[in-house]
Design a protein around this nucleic acid. Structure first.
Lengths: 338, 338
DNA sequence: ATTATTTGCGAAATCGTTTTAGTAAATTTT
DNA sequence: AAAATTTACTAAAACGATTTCGCAAATAAT
C-alpha cells in the first residue's frame, strides 16, 4: 500500500494525498478528512526510505558505546531511548567493544546520512579523534557523554569526575588509609585522567605522596587485571585501600580478595565508580561513586535534539556536568586494627 | 558525493559506476579498479535510503525488549549485536517498559519496511498476540526469544525453563525446605508459567502440596512487590524458601530480608533466575539459575538471518532450547536449625 | 567471410515520497 | 463587471541508487 494506490482509491492525485496526510494548508478540510480515513482504513504507512531520501532526514540517531552489558551504559541507553521515543526518533545501537579500530569503522558507517545525529562514549583505546573530526566536518550533530575527548569541540555531558574522585579519596584518607592504590582503565580517556587527578590531588593536599607504583593501568582483559591486582596485593608495599575507576575493576578486586582471603574493609578498603544495583547487598557492601547514568543519557539526548532541530550546529557548545553521589557502605568502614 | 558526481569524474555512466561498485560481471576488471579507486579517493558512500528504497531491503533489524537496564537483556543484546555486526546489519532498539500498549505501538511502527526482521521478547503485560499476527501477515521475519508466546507460530529461542525450575525446586527440597514460595511476574508469559509449572511439579512429585497462597503474582512496581514479599514473610504460615522467577524479585527478597532481619539461608533460602555478575559477591552469595543470555541472543539472531536470507519464511519453525545452569551458592545452603 | 555470441557499457525506468511550479475555478477587491 | 487574489488541486521534478533493456564493438563459431 503506497501513495499511488491510495490516491487511486480516492480519485485524487498523489501530491494531494501526500499533502493531506501532512496537513498542508493547500488541501481542504473535507478532503483531508476523507484521505485520513481512507489511509487508516487501508492501513497506509509512509515508506521511511522514500521519505528519508526526499527529506534528507532519517529520524534516527546512533548510540555508540564501548559495551552494553554494563550498568552505566545500559542505564544511559535507557535515558537516551526515553527521550528519543518521546520525539518519535529511532535508536541505532553500535558497540565498539573497547576497540579503537571498530570505533573508527562505525563512525565511517555513520557518515552517509543514515542518522541525524550521534551520541557517543569513547572506547578506552581511542587514541586520537580524527574520526570524530570527520563527523564534525560532515556537519553531523555529535554529542559525547561520559567518556569524552577533551580535544574535540563539541557538546559534552559528564559527571563531576574530578570532584567526586577527590572526595572519594578524601573519604578513604579520613578513614585511616595512607597508601591508596588507583586502578585506571586508560591513559587516553579524559574521565580516567580526571578521576586520577582527583585522586592525586587529594593525596597531595593531605600530605601524602602519590606513587607511580600505586597507579595501575588496567586493560580490557579481566584475567590480566586480576593478576595485576593480585600482584599489587602481594607486594611488600601493599596498599591499604583501592580506588577502582570503573565498576568492573571493583568487582575484580572483590574476586581477588576472596581468593587471597584479604578481608575488606579490615585489611583493604575498596571504593569504586559504579552503578551496581546490588552494591548494598555485596559482602561487604561496596562504597560507590554513583553517576547519574540515566540522567546523563537523557541530558545528552536533549542536547543532541537541540542541535538537530536548530540548524546552527556550530553555535551550541554546551558542556554539561551532572553530580555523582558518593554512597558510603561497609567496604570503606574504619575498623580498629590490632 | 553521489553516484552522479562520481560518474562525471570518471567519464562513465551512472549505471556503469553502480555496477562496478557492486562487482557486476558486466564491467571490465580495469574499469572496476579505476571506479573503486576513485570512489575511495572521493570518499563515496552509498546513500542507504536510496539503496534501501530501490532494493526493498534495509539491512537493519529491530530488537524489541521490555527493558535494557537488566542483566539478561543487556547480555542478550550483546549477543544480537555481535551477529548483526558480523553480517553488516544495523540494530534498532525499542523498549516496551513492560507496557503492552507500547509494545503494540512499536510493532505498528515496524510494519513499514524499516527493518528486515524483528527480534522480540514480550512484555509481562502482553495479553494477546494480535500485534504479532499482523507482523506475520506482513511477512516480516520474526523470532521470539526468552519471553515468547506459545500461541504464535514462529521461531522461538528459549532456555529450559521448566526443567531448570524443576531442578531448582528439587534443590531446595533436598536442602530441607518444605514450604517454598514462588514469585511470579506475569500470568500471561509462557516463561513465567513454565517456571511455575516446574516448581509445582517438583513439589508434587516430592509429596508436597502446592498452595496458592505460596504463589505470589508480582508486578512491575518494585514497592508493591516488596510489600507483597514483606506480607508473605510476616504471615503465620511463612515460607522457608523463596523461588524468584526473575532477578529483580530475588533482589527484592534480599532487600526485605535485610529490613526484617531475616537471615538467609538460616531462616529463609533464596534461589532465583538471574544473570547477575555479582551473585557470588552478595551477602549471602545467591544461588542462581543462570540463562545463557548471550548465546540466546546469538542463536535468535542466527535464526532470524536464516529466515531473512531464505525467502521461504513459512518453512522455518525452529524452536531452540538452550540449557540454563544452576549455580549453587550460600543462599540455599542447608543450615542446622536449633 | 558471414553469422552468432559475448563483452562492456549507456539510457531510461523504477523504488515511494515530497515539493515546486503551475492552473482552473471560486472568491474577493475595486 | 473587470481585475486581483485565494482556494484546492494536479503534473512533474526531484532525492540517489539499482536494474532491465538495448546496442555497438569485439570475439567466437561455422
Amino acid at each position: 500500500m503506497n501513495l499511488k494506490q491510495l490516491a487511486k482509491e480516492l480519485n485524487l492525485s498523489i501530491s494531494a494525498v501526500s499533502k493531506a496526510l501532512r496537513d498542508s494548508h493547500e488541501i481542504s478540510a473535507a478532503t483531508k478528512a476523507t484521505v485520513i480515513a481512507k489511509a487508516k482504513e487501508l492501513n497506509y504507512q509512509v515508506n521511511p526510505f522514500a521519505s528519508s531520501l526526499r527529506k534528507q532526514k532519517s529520524k534516527t540517531i546512533a548510540v555508540v558505546v564501548p559495551e552494553i552489558a554494563n550498568n552505566f551504559f545500559s542505564l544511559a541507553i535507557n535515558g537516551i531511548e526515553s527521550i528519543a521515543q518521546e520525539r518519535g526518533y529511532h535508536v541505532l545501537i553500535y558497540l565498539t567493544h573497547e576497540d579503537f579500530q571498530k570505533e573508527i569503522a562505525i563512525t565511517k558507517l555513520l557518515q552517509n546520512g543514515r542518522v541525524d545525529g550521534i551520541l557517543m562514549s569513547l572506547s578506552s583505546q581511542t587514541a586520537n579523534i580524527l574520526h570524530l573530526e570527520e563527523i564534525k566536518e560532515k556537519q553531523i550533530p555529535l554529542v559525547l557523554f561520559d567518556r569524552v575527548a577533551e580535544s574535540i569541540d563539541c557538546p559534552k555531558v559528564n559527571a563531576d569526575d574530578y570532584k567526586s574522585a577527590l572526595k572519594a579519596t578524601e573519604h578513604l584518607i579520613e578513614n585511616g588509609c595512607r597508601n591508596i592504590a588507583f586502578l585506571s582503565i586508560s591513559n587516553y580517556l579524559s574521565i580516567s585522567n580526571k578521576r586520577m587527578k582527583g585522586y592525586v590531588d587529594a593525596l597531595r593536599s593531605n600530605g601524602l605522596k602519590s606513587e607511580n607504583s600505586m597507579i595501575i593501568e588496567c586493560s580490557n582483559h579481566e584475567e590480566n587485571n586480576k593478576s595485576l591486582i593480585k600482584k599489587l596485593l602481594k607486594s611488600k608495599h601493599r596498599p591499604d585501600a583501592i580506588f577502582a575507576s570503573v565498576e568492573k575493576l571493583a568487582l575484580n578486586v572483590y574476586d581477588v580478595c576472596k581468593e587471597l582471603k584479604v578481608n575488606i574493609p579490615k585489611d583493604l578498603k575498596v571504593i569504586g565508580f559504579s552503578n551496581l544495583q546490588t552494591a548494598t547487598f555485596l559482602n561487604p557492601s561496596l562504597t560507590t561513586i554513583t553517576q547519574p547514568a540515566y540522567e546523563m543519557g537523557r541530558e545528552a539526548t536533549s542536547i543532541l535534539f537541540k542541535i538537530i532541530e536548530k540548524r546552527g550546529y556550530n553555535m551550541i557548545l554546551e558542556k554539561t556536568t551532572l553530580k555523582s553521589e558518593i554512597i558510603i557502605r561497609e567496604s570503606t568502614l574504619a575498623v580498629s586494627k590490632k
